[in-house]
Amino acid sequence: MDGGGRVRTTWGSATDCGPFRRLNEDALFACPPLFVVADGMGGHDAGEVAARIAVEEAGRLADRRTVAADDVHLVVREISARVRGAAPAGRTMGTTFAGVGVAHHHGAAYWLVFNIGDSRVYRYAGGELDQISVDHSVVQELVDRGVIAPDEALHHPDRHVITRAIGTGPDAEPDYWLIPVGPADRMLVCTDGLTEELAGGEIAALLGSVADPQAAAEQLVDEAVRRGSRDNVTAIVIDVVTLHAGDDARPGVPGELSAGTTNPRETPAPVPEVDR
């Protein structure tokens, strides 16, 4: 089944403690088919430990060719158990967990995007930057309910208060998205240290102008640090290199037709609609 729509990726990553932090409580894992960031929290080095556990567990999926949501689900369970076990009595530590993996469904290649917390996954394609993941944050709840406008969220005092994380409450369930891989997709996985400093337009401009993914990741992080990020900053940039259409690849795999729009049928079938 994996003859069609096989994806090869190239990627680059960067992380920086930032000028004000003593510890880097961000961690990342980048190796096909999985690219993950974790933003730990918990005081002292607890956040560091939680984030490291998260990427260690994610690393277990590194030898796969593809990942599925069920795989990620199990990894999250495992992280949750280990983080709880590692937390000293009376202390809580936790971590965000966001990333993208390459998944296959019926011969087509997909980005499996997942998220717990306020780290983010974006897709840059055709000059447009789309935020795929949706934060688990108080501010996002306010935006969803229409209480505040999205641009107010950028400066809202509660913008760092997240409502879901691994290790802190009941077993946290990630949200998932499955998006067909486009031939020229560039994915960005980052922690909030980056999005706090750089606006979407600035991120898009940089992703559009720096071809090498490693250079792009470094420049994104450097720019956030240069602006005096008060948080740790982490970014992974993933590019699609080639889409191998195997021998049995059927027409219609996303890689070939991702930009296509559906053609109306020339003669719509003259049938009545279902009476309801």
């Binding site: 011969g107 998205w177 499955l178 067909p180 059927r250 219609g252 296509g260 729009t261 559906t262 109306p264």
Partner: peptide, 29 residues
């Protein structure tokens, strides 16, 4: 669909995506 995709899916119930051929792109993504 021709290239189905999911939007935000909470929890483990990720839909199964079934891709079907549509050379003339009569079938929507």
């Amino acid at each position: 669909g021709r290239a189905p995709q999911t939007t935000r899916t909470p929890g483990g119930e990720v839909p199964r995506l079934v891709t079907v051929a549509s050379p003339n792109q009569d079938i929507s993504r």
